[in-house]
Design a protein around this nucleic acid. Structure first.
Lengths: 348, 348
DNA sequence: CTGTTAGCGCGTTCAT
DNA sequence: ATGAACGCGCTAACAG
C-alpha cells in the first residue's frame, strides 16, 4: 500500500503522485485522465478513474491554481447580502457556478456603500478569482480602473456599470409601466416614493426609475408635485417614513403613489393601515420588484426576477471563461406588470 | 528595471522574487517582512514594505496556500441565502472575516435542503477552506462524518448541530417567553403556527420552539387545540396559508396565535387584514425573530440578532485558527421580548 | 538578522 | 499514448 496516503487513519493528503503510483502510470497521465483530456487510452483512463475514486483523491485547488493560473472561483461583489434583490441574485449565481464546478467567493460591502469603511480593492481579487460579478453597485472610477487592470471578465447584475456589460431590466420602461398603469386607471394626482436617497455614486437604477416616472407623467401631461416626491433608500423603514411625510401634508393628497421598490411600497402600506387610509379605495399603490412579501400583501407591482438575472450573468461569464463566444445577450431582462389588490380607479 | 513584472503594460505577475530583487534582499526576508514576522530589522522591513507597495505586490493566495497549507478562507454553508436569518448572519460573518483578512467561500443549498439535488460533499471543502460555518442546517450523519474527516474547525450558527459547538439562542426559552407574554395578557385559547413542516432532518429549531410553546401552555394548565396547531415552513406564503386554515375553522377561534417565525406572523397578519379580522382587538399575534418588516408592521415579537450570531461565530473560529484558546463562549445568545401593537388582552 | 534551499501538488512542455 | 522534468510563487527549515 502506498505509504503517504494514510494519515490520521483516514484518507487525506492523497496527492496525484499517490494515485499515479497505485495506478502504475505517470502523474501526467493521471492529470490528463482526470480532466478528460485526449491522449489517454480508454483502458488507462478507466483504471485511473477507478483508482482515484477508491483513494478518495481530490486535486488541491491551491496547487491547481498555482500551476494553471485559474482558480475555478468567481467573485461576487455586493452592497448587501441581506436584501431581497441581492439574496436572490446570489442564489441564482451560486447555482450555476456550483453546477459547473466553480466556487463563489463573496465580497459584501455590508452597507458601507459609501465612505472610508468601504474597502474593496483590487488586491482582494488578485489571483483569487477568474471573474467578477458586480451586483447593483456603483463603482468609483478608481475601483473600475483597478478592476480592469486585473484583466478578468467583469459583469454587472441589477444595474448598468460603466465599462462592462450587465444583466438587468430596463428600469426606465419598468417605471413607466407602473406609472402608466396608474394613469390608465384614471389617476391624475400621483406621488412618487423614490429610492436612492443621496449620492448613490455611479449606481444608476434609482435615477432611471425616476426618469421613467417623470416621462410617463409628462406624456400624460400630468404635473409633478415636488412635495409628493420623497426620497428613501429602498427599505421598508424608509417606506413608512416617506409615506408619513406625504400623509402629514396639508391640502389634497395624491390618489396614487408609485414606489421605487416593493419594500418601500410595503412600508407605505403599513403606514396607511395604521392611519386608517383604505387601499385601494382611497389610495392606489404600485411598486417594483415582486418581493417575497408582495403576493401575500396583495401588492400590485412590476415583477422582475433577480434569481434569473444571477443565473444569466453567471452563465455568460462562465462561457466567456471557457472561451466560447458569449451567447447573444438579450439587451434587457423581462419584467411584467402584476395587478393585485392595491390599485383601482380613483374615487373622485 | 526588473525584467518580469511588466507584462501587458500593467503591473501584474509581480512575484516575491521581483520584490526581493528590487529590495536587494532574499525572498525569505521579503516573506517575513510582509507577514510581520520577527527576525527582520526595522530598516529592512520598511524598505521591503516600500518596495512591495511601489510595485503593487500582492502575494498569490494559491502559492501561499500550497506552501502553508492554509488558505485564509472560511466556508459558509447555508440552506438559503435569500432568507432573513441567513442573509444577516452571512453579513455578520463576512464582516469579521474581511476585517481579519479572511475570505468567505459561500456554499448554498439553494432550497435543496432535502433530496438528491442536495450536493454538498467533503470534496468541495477539501484543501479549500480553513474552517466551516454551518448555518441552521441539519447535517446528515454521513455529511457530518465527511466533514469531521477534513479535520477543520466546525461551528454551527442559528441552531445546534451534533458534534460541534454553535451560536444560537435558547429556542425553547424564546418560544416560552412569547407564549407567556400571551398568557400574561389573559389569553387562554392560543394557537400555534409552527415552522418546520416536514422532516427537517437534524435541524432542531422548529421542534425546540414547539417544546417551549407546549411547556408554557402546560404550566398554565391550558389545553392544546390540535386544529389550531398548523405547520408551515417559516415563510410568508406559508403564514397566510396556515392562517387561512385556522380562520376557516368552524367553532370558537383562538384569541391569540404564536408564530414560529416573524415571516409566518406577517403572513398571518396579511390574511387577517384581508378578512377584516382586527389585530390586536380580536386576535393577538406574536412572532420570533424581529424581521426587518416587523417594526414597520408593528408586530410584537421575540427579537434575536443573526448579524451578531454571525460575528460571534466567525470570531470564535478565527481565534481557534490562530491557536488562541477560544474565548469563553456564552451558552446562548440573548433574545428579547419586543412588545408592539399586535398583542393585547383578549376581548372576551 | 539574513540568505539558501527544499518542497507544497499540480499543469505542461518535450521527448519517447 | 505515455513519461520525465521543470516551473508556478510561496513558506519553512536550516545555515550562517
Amino acid at each position: 500500500m502506498a505509504a503517504s496516503y494514510l494519515k490520521k487513519g483516514v484518507a487525506m493528503g492523497v496527492s496525484i503522485d499517490d494515485v499515479a503510483a497505485q495506478a502504475h502510470v505517470s502523474t501526467a497521465t493521471v492529470s490528463r485522465a482526470l480532466r478528460g483530456l485526449p491522449r489517454v487510452s480508454e483502458p488507462t483512463r478507466a483504471k485511473v478513474l477507478a483508482v482515484a475514486k477508491s483513494m478518495g483523491y481530490v486535486a488541491s485547488p491551491s496547487a491547481r491554481g498555482l500551476a494553471s493560473g485559474r482558480t475555478r472561483t468567481v467573485g461576487v461583489l455586493v452592497p448587501y447580502v441581506d436584501r431581497w434583490y441581492f439574496g436572490h441574485a446570489i442564489e441564482g449565481i451560486d447555482q450555476v457556478l456550483r453546477d459547473n464546478g466553480y466556487n463563489l467567493l463573496l465580497f459584501s460591502l455590508g452597507g458601507y456603500v459609501h465612505g472610508t469603511k468601504r474597502s474593496f480593492t483590487e488586491s482582494m481579487v488578485r489571483k483569487q478569482i477568474d471573474a467578477l460579478l458586480v451586483l447593483s453597485l456603483g463603482l468609483s472610477p478608481e475601483e473600475l480602473r483597478q478592476l480592469h487592470t486585473t484583466d478578468i471578465p467583469l459583469m454587472s447584475v441589477g444595474g448598468p456599470v460603466e465599462g462592462c456589460s450587465g444583466i438587468y431590466i430596463d428600469d426606465v420602461a419598468a417605471a413607466s409601466a407602473a406609472t402608466e398603469h396608474l394613469i390608465a386607471l384614471g389617476h391624475r394626482r400621483i406621488g412618487y416614493l423614490r429610492g436612492g436617497v443621496q449620492d448613490e455614486q455611479n449606481f444608476k437604477v434609482p435615477a432611471l426609475r425616476t426618469v421613467g416616472f417623470e416621462a410617463s407623467m409628462a406624456r400624460a401631461e400630468l404635473s409633478l408635485h415636488p412635495e409628493w416626491n420623497v426620497p428613501g433608500d429602498f427599505t421598508v423603514a424608509e417606506g413608512v417614513r416617506a409615506a408619513a411625510g406625504i400623509f402629514d401634508l396639508a391640502g389634497p393628497n395624491p390618489t396614487a403613489i408609485f414606489c421605487g421598490s416593493d419594500e418601500m411600497a410595503l412600508g407605505l402600506l403599513f403606514e396607511a393601515q395604521r392611519r386608517g387610509i383604505r387601499v385601494p379605495e382611497e389610495l392606489s399603490v404600485v411598486g417594483i420588484d415582486d418581493h417575497d412579501f408582495s403576493k401575500a400583501a396583495g401588492l400590485t407591482t412590476i415583477a422582475q426576477n433577480p434569481w434569473e438575472h444571477g443565473r444569466a450573468a453567471a452563465t455568460i461569464v462562465l462561457s466567456e471563461l471557457d472561451g466560447k463566444k458569449e451567447p447573444q445577450k438579450k439587451p434587457y431582462m423581462p419584467f411584467e406588470l402584476v395587478v393585485r389588490n392595491t390599485t383601482a380607479p380613483p374615487m373622485s
